[in-house]
Design a protein around this nucleic acid. Structure first.
Lengths: 124, 124
DNA sequence: CTGAATCCTCGAGGATACTG
DNA sequence: CAGTATCCTCGAGGATTCAG
C-alpha cells in the first residue's frame, strides 16, 4: 500500500502477495486440504491435522471464516458441535493450491538434491 | 518430521508445506515473477521489485540458488555484473504460482468484501 | 467440546554500515 | 555494483489456563 505500482507487474504481484498472506501461513493450506474432502468438527480437524495448537486452529479458522473461505455451523447440542465446511470460494482456492501440491510432488526431490549438492560444494 | 504421517493426506500436506516454506515468504514469488520475464541484475532486480532491502534480496536469491531455482552468473567485469536467471526448475514453479495469481485476480475482491462484511457484522 | 485469554519464544524481515 | 556483517523490531506460532 506504499508503492505507486506503476507497472502491471507490481500490481499483479501485490495480489499474489495478498493471497500468499492468506495461504502462506503454516496451517491454512493443511486445513483447506482436509476440509476439501468433507466438513469436519473442531477437534476432529485438530486430530486429523496433528501438531497444531487449538489456539492456532481457532485463529486460522476464524481468519478463513472472515475471508469467506469456510462456513462455521454451530449445532446447539450438548456438548456443542461446531462443523466447519469449505465454501465454494474455499473450494475454488483448493484448485490452484492442489496444482502447487502436484508441482511439489514432482519437483521436491529435485530441490532437496540441489540443496544437498549446494551445501556439499560449500562445505568440502 | 515428528508425525507418523499415517495417511496419504498428511504426506502430501508435508510436501506442500515444504513448497510453501520456499514460496510462502515475502519476496520469493515477486522475484520469480520478475525473473520469469527475463534475467535481471542485482540492483535492477532491487529497483524493479521496490521495497526490498538488499539484505533480503541477497538472502532470498541465495536460497533460490541453493534450491536450484535460479542461476547466478558473474561477469568478471569492472564494476562487477551479476546476472540472475530462472532455471528450468524455477520456470516450472512459475506455472502453479501464476495459477495462484490468476485465482487472486478473480477472487481477491470477493475476499475483501467478505472481510468488510464480517467486520461490519461484528462492530455495529 | 469449543473456544477465549494470557504469556513466551524465536526467527523473518528491515536498517545501517562496511568491503572487494 | 554486489554483496557481507551486525543489530533490532515485531508478530507468527506454541503452551497453558480459564470459561460457557
Amino acid at each position: 500500500m506504499d508503492m505507486p505500482a506503476s507497472s502491471g507487474v507490481s500490481a499483479q504481484c501485490r495480489k499474489i502477495g495478498k493471497v500468499l498472506a492468506i495461504v502462506g501461513d503454516k496451517w491454512t493450506v493443511m486445513i483447506v486440504r482436509v476440509l476439501v474432502q468433507r466438513p469436519h468438527r473442531f477437534n476432529e480437524l485438530k486430530r486429523t491435522i496433528g501438531g497444531i495448537s487449538q489456539q492456532m486452529l481457532t485463529r486460522t479458522l476464524k481468519a478463513l471464516e472472515r475471508d469467506g473461505m469456510v462456513n462455521r455451523t454451530v449445532h446447539p447440542t450438548v456438548p456443542p458441535q461446531v462443523e466447519y465446511a469449505l465454501t465454494s470460494l474455499g473450494q475454488s482456492l483448493a484448485v490452484p493450491v492442489h496444482a502447487l501440491g502436484v508441482w511439489a510432488g514432482e519437483h521436491l526431490a529435485e530441490i532437496e538434491q540441489n540443496r544437498a549438492r549446494y551445501d556439499d560444494d560449500r562445505n568440502v
